[in-house]
């Protein structure tokens, strides 16, 4: 895959990818009932970088899991490119995750018995239109660490392998749950740069959960969560580069 091929996907449109209306998720029943999502209305467009901010338990992760097809809402509408995610079956959701979604987690979730290259190749072997695993790792400046096992990499390196794994399939959506939560600030910035770069160069809709208000500046849009709802929305006039952030 050449640089030219990558460029083709760059032109931005504002086509809506996700559309959520009255999205509700209730865990448990009766006295133990918890309303994790209490009616979320939301549209997410191609190429956007959206930061979700809010206290613990405000419903950010639940929303992310619903967007990623890991969980289904209790009620409300949720569609991805017109596909109804609320009624999709197990196989359709697997297909959807495999083809369209890249995940990045707080604790990296690499396969400990596979090297950096193999962790990425695992995905490129099953994806529909992947980039070579080496290229994805190269994008994350990990060209020299291809044959290292997770236990031989630092936290920041592990997270960058995870990002390479997530973007290697050229997903349309990149979902990041506290990607810097376990990292120090310097390493955190490196990881955010990598996410920013994936969003910019691949035109991937990127949704990023954080507790850290400082990260809001790098977003196109910031959604403030509380009590299972989007409490407030803010659109940045311009995105601050990740390396300018400080916390």
């Amino acid at each position: 895959m050449t640089r030219d091929a990558l460029e083709i996907r760059l032109p931005r449109s504002t086509q809506t990818l996700f559309r959520a209306r009255g999205l509700t998720k209730v865990y448990g029943m009766g006295e133990t009932e918890v309303r994790a999502l209490a009616g979320v209305d939301l549209d997410l467009a191609e190429g956007e970088l959206v930061v979700l901010l809010g206290p613990s338990g405000s419903g950010k992760t639940t929303l992310l899991n619903n967007l990623g097809g890991l969980d289904v809402p209790t009620s409300g509408e949720l569609s991805y490119r017109g596909m109804d995610l609320t009624s999709a079956d197990e196989a359709q959701l697997t297909r959807y995750r495999r083809d369209s979604v890249g995940f990045i987690f707080q604790f990296y979730n690499l396969i400990p018995s596979l090297t950096a290259l193999e962790n990425v190749a695992l995905i490129t072997e099953i994806a529909r239109d992947p980039m070579p695993a080496e290229q994805a790792l190269e994008m994350m400046h990990l060209g020299g660490r291809l044959d290292h096992f997770p236990a031989q990499l630092s936290g920041g390196e592990q997270q960058r392998v995870a990002i390479a794994r997530a973007i290697a399939k050229r997903p349309e959506v990149l979902l990041c749950d506290e990607p810097t939560g376990a990292l120090d600030i310097r390493t955190g910035i490196v990881v955010l740069e990598a996410i920013e770069r994936a969003n910019r160069e691949l035109g991937t809709l990127t949704v990023l959960i954080t507790h850290n208000a400082a990260m809001a500046d790098m977003a196109d849009r910031v959604l403030y969560f509380s009590d299972g709802r989007v409490h407030r929305e803010h659109r940045n006039a311009s995105r601050a580069p990740a390396n300018s952030l400080n916390w």
């Binding site: 196989a91 083809d99 690499l110």
Partner: peptide, 15 residues
């Protein structure tokens, strides 16, 4: 965790 990760990134149950 490892197996759940595989499921999340798009592996089917069978895989």
């Amino acid at each position: 965790r490892e197996l759940a990760t595989l499921r999340v990134i798009g592996f089917s149950r069978r895989e």
